[in-house]
């Protein structure tokens, strides 16, 4: 599948990337104006990774996400109004105001959740893969994480379990070059993070994470392998976060020139150029198609803000409700004393 020559695919990819961009610009703006509470981690500049990766997935497939997870949610098909409502501390938010930006999940679309702990989702993804294997399913799990996660113990343990048990998991690293302020050059003694895959006996590739087609190709390859029983793979996608780590970041650890050089490699602008005739093939989209995708993304985000703003605030009267799930059906057999 080529995203740049098939009009429907191209529109989907472009609209998804624009939706992520517009959603995050909107929350960044609301936060700056004091209209949004808490903290958040923006993935502006990295939109091609979740977009390309999730286009390689089918209904029923799972993902685990990260603290920088808005893009994963959106690309996997989450409802924007419920995401926005969560960030705006509303009862209608995905987590009823209990989770906020770092814990949005959408189990209905297979999104097992963002995670506030670096690499927290990696062994969880292995476990979801184990569940699929044990019940003879054909679903695949994509585990998203950043470069920082690759130095966490949980990452190594989770990847190893998936490897020794041939689990249907694709480990997708968004290498945005910094774990907060720690650059990959200082945090790793390997040239590419994908080299780590060899240590676990699984395939590993490094690809351009600013090109949704390249990400799609690598992840689709890994998904095919996983779905057919070939076990897990590691895809390292090289990208860059334009914004700070979170809200306290003064960008003291990187230069203005470096940030600017990556902004010039804007994944959305590059994709627009490719789909409107940048390549040798006939253009998949016209200028007006592109404009339509942009407008659709903008309108979706505006509508999400409107809907969320009108929703009731999360209610402290029910705060302790969801600490424990109510007892459901016991497993089969036996009696209660």
């Amino acid at each position: 599948m080529t995203l740049t020559t098939e009009a429907d695919r191209a529109k989907h990819a472009l609209t998804t990337m624009w939706t992520i961009r517009r959603f995050e610009e909107a929350v960044d703006d609301m936060f700056a104006r004091g209209l949004m509470h808490g903290t958040m981690h923006l993935s502006i500049g990295q939109e091609a990774v979740p977009t390309g990766a999730c286009m390689a997935l089918s209904e029923g497939d799972y993902i685990t996400s990260t603290h920088r997870g808005h893009g994963h949610c959106i690309a996997k098909g989450a409802k924007l109004d419920a995401m926005m409502a969560e960030l705006l501390a509303k009862e209608t938010g995905y987590c009823r105001g209990r989770g906020g930006s770092m814990h949005i999940a959408d189990v209905a679309t297979g999104n097992l959740g963002a995670n506030g702990i670096v690499a927290g989702g990696v062994p969880i993804a292995a476990g979801a893969g184990l569940a699929v294997r044990m019940r003879g399913g054909s679903e695949v799990v994509v585990s998203f994480f950043g470069d920082g996660a690759v130095n966490e113990g949980a990452w190594h343990e989770g990847v190893n379990l998936a490897a020794i048990w041939d689990l249907p998991v694709v480990f997708v690293c968004e290498n945005n070059r910094y774990g907060m302020s720690m650059s990959v050059d200082r945090a790793f003694n390997v040239d590419t993070l994908a080299e780590r895959a060899r240590g676990y006996g699984i395939p590993g590739v490094t690809v351009d994470g600013n090109d949704p087609q390249t990400v799609y190709d690598a992840v689709a390859d890994a998904v095919r392998r996983a779905r057919s029983g070939g076990g897990p793979s590691f895809v390292e996608a090289l990208t860059y976060r334009w914004k700070g780590h979170s809200k306290s970041d003064k960008n003291l650890y990187r230069t203005r020139e470096e940030i600017e050089s990556w902004r010039e490699r804007d994944p959305i602008a590059a994709f627009e150029a490719a789909v409107t005739g940048g390549g040798a093939t006939a253009p998949a989209l016209s200028e007006s198609d592109v404009e339509e995708c942009r407008a659709l993304a903008r309108d979706r985000v505006r509508e999400a803000i409107r809907t969320a703003n009108a929703a009731p605030d999360a209610d402290a009267a029910t705060l302790t409700d969801a600490v424990y799930a109510p007892a459901g059906e016991p497993i089969a057999g036996g009696t209660r004393a």
Binding site: I124, G127, A128, A131, L161
Partner: peptide
């Protein structure tokens, strides 16, 4: 399969159980 030996990876084992539980096991 159902009485599953694991490597010495307590964090990974519990994480795998969390994921398996989330996915219906």
């Amino acid at each position: 399969e159902r009485v599953r030996d694991t490597p010495i990876s307590e964090l990974g084992i519990v994480g795998a159980a969390v994921g398996a539980g989330l996915a219906g096991m």
